[in-house]
Design a protein around this nucleic acid. Sequence first.
DNA 1: TCTAAACCTTACGTGAACGTAAGCTTGAGG
DNA 2: CCTCAAGCTTACGTTCACGTAAGGTTTAGA
Lengths: 179, 179
Amino acid sequence: MASQANARKGSGRHASAPAPDEGTAMRIGDLARLVGTTPRTIRYYEEIGLLPAAAERHAGVHRLYGASDVERLREIMSLRQLLGVSLEELKELLSAQEARAALKAEYHREDLSPARRREVLAESLVHIERQLALVERRVRELSGLRDELRGRAKRIRALLAEGKQGAAQRRKAAAGGRA
Amino acid sequence: MASQANARKGSGRHASAPAPDEGTAMRIGDLARLVGTTPRTIRYYEEIGLLPAAAERHAGVHRLYGASDVERLREIMSLRQLLGVSLEELKELLSAQEARAALKAEYHREDLSPARRREVLAESLVHIERQLALVERRVRELSGLRDELRGRAKRIRALLAEGKQGAAQRRKAAAGGRA
DNA sequence: TCTAAACCTTACGTGAACGTAAGCTTGAGG
DNA sequence: CCTCAAGCTTACGTTCACGTAAGGTTTAGA
């Protein structure tokens, strides 16, 4: 019922196209398999606004995705895993990127004042740098942890090497080493 | 950080001492404030076996913690945040460390065969290296992300700089730059 | 045209990681 | 010794991030 005025199946263009014009159109199951998740998760992300909800999709019609959606979803899952943030925080972080995508389109139009163009770029830069700061902090912290662990490993290896060639009493000299 | 053989407290020794001999004994609320969490969380961690449950504590008696507990809890929260693992996974990861702590005690006894000593050390090394591998992978992934973001920022800054000194048409020449 | 797999919506269920409330007990300080 | 803030146990509540099931619809393909 209600098949609407959508009879234009001639070539491409069904409801809910993946993007203005992106080659490969896949369904939710394919996308899920591709990025290693489930349809439910993808729908959930859409539901909470983490993934954009193809505007022109009538109730019941299958969702369609393109290459950019794959990329986006991959990025989401990667960021989530790496930064360990909640989906809500991630959404905020990426709203930046969404805006950037929109602005990117705007940016590439020929009729755009240089001033506006600069505005768009500047805003993008702010967003990226915010993400960057987050990531860099994280890298620093993790590097610290890594170095600590390396130190411990090194100390143990030293003890092992020392023990190997006799000198069991030598240990007292090198006291303080935490096992 | 080992406080070594401290002067025995005059009349210390209530149930649930923080450790065989650790100076500062604090209650759960203090510990919570110190590491930035809540008593409930600490009890929960104990409940699921992530924090050791002072063996000799009779029902109803207040929990007491020492410096090593602070350290332990800090490490837990840090690892959890940095590695983004579940408490269950973390528990496994740390069971290693727990064992190490136990073995450390054993290790420092004078009467211990060099062979056994080497065993203890080797096992410790395995555990540490497992953690290390995890952390290093994480660092690599995050570094990749960081570099990607840096690249994007750089490109945008280049566009901004270019736009700044006139030449609005120059853009066409440097086409392909993703906003 | 017909079929069956994949998808749709809606809604309730679940595990992890705590939050919160109630009623009672402990223990540090006056 | 008394008090009362802080703790204790028990138990139900909550948020997040999906899982799962039911019942109907869409759509690729024979």
